[in-house]
Amino acid sequence: MIYTCYGLTFVSDLALPELLAAAASAARSEPDVQIRLGQVPTEGLTDGRQRGPFLWVSPRALWLRVPRIARFLVSDGNLITIAPEPGVDEDSIRVFLLGSALGALLFQRGLLVLHGNAIRIGEQCMVCVGASGAGKSTLAAGFLRRGYEILGDDVIAVDADCRALPGFPRIKLWQDTAQRLHIDTAQLRRIRPALAKFNYPLASPVIGVPLPIRWVYILGSHPLPDTRCEPIHGLERFTPLRNNTYRVRFLEGMALKREHLQLCGKLAGRIHLTRITRPERGFELDALVDRILADLAAHP
């Protein structure tokens, strides 16, 4: 099957229903990326360094093992080889393929990868980053409900011109989030059979062209009842942006680390960066969306 996302064509041994099928014409040209089922070394990379108990990185390759699910070898920005563990379901493989493995591949192609989601605002976009559990996907769903287009969720690829590339048309929603948005999960596919987290396909196909990133919000929470918006200025912007790179550890030992940091600096220099901190209890989604929309309008 041939698919498209992040402006790339993928040919894959594994069916990837989350992605958009590529136009028939794409079949005639060489794909940008191949996803194959095949052999992956069992104990890391001979020419790389171990960066975690299940992670090896070399200048041109990244090896990742998700125990009891699969081993992934991502090489040269154009090939992902997957060795599934016996008996594993395809949904489980896809979750980590479309997360960590795809993130590593985008890094290898020289793109800056942010951990968050991108939302179209006119002819530009805003990106929301933040720690796991901060509420990024809930916020994306909130914007979606207001009629905004989502360029991508979870893995955001940024090109050398500081534009976010359109990802694939889905967001991942926990049961609780779906419920508060009145989304009936009975019709949705679980991202993995054992998780109460659902694949929510976006009805309208995401916009097909990259959009310049104008705003980045770092979403967090605190035990106070108010929502705080704190702009980050000047050189202060670099570190928080780098810290919200997708899996900073992947960069260590990669050939393109310097380029990534440069691109991160370039992006830091041209965005309006704001830390937005919500109450940890009583997540007022609509109020948060309004707050961000007002802030966007105040900093065009």
């Binding site: 980590f96 997360g99 899996r247 992947f250």
Partner: peptide, 11 residues
Amino acid sequence: QVLGFDTAELT
């Protein structure tokens, strides 16, 4: 951070 993949996707 140490695992290199999201515990959010695990049971």
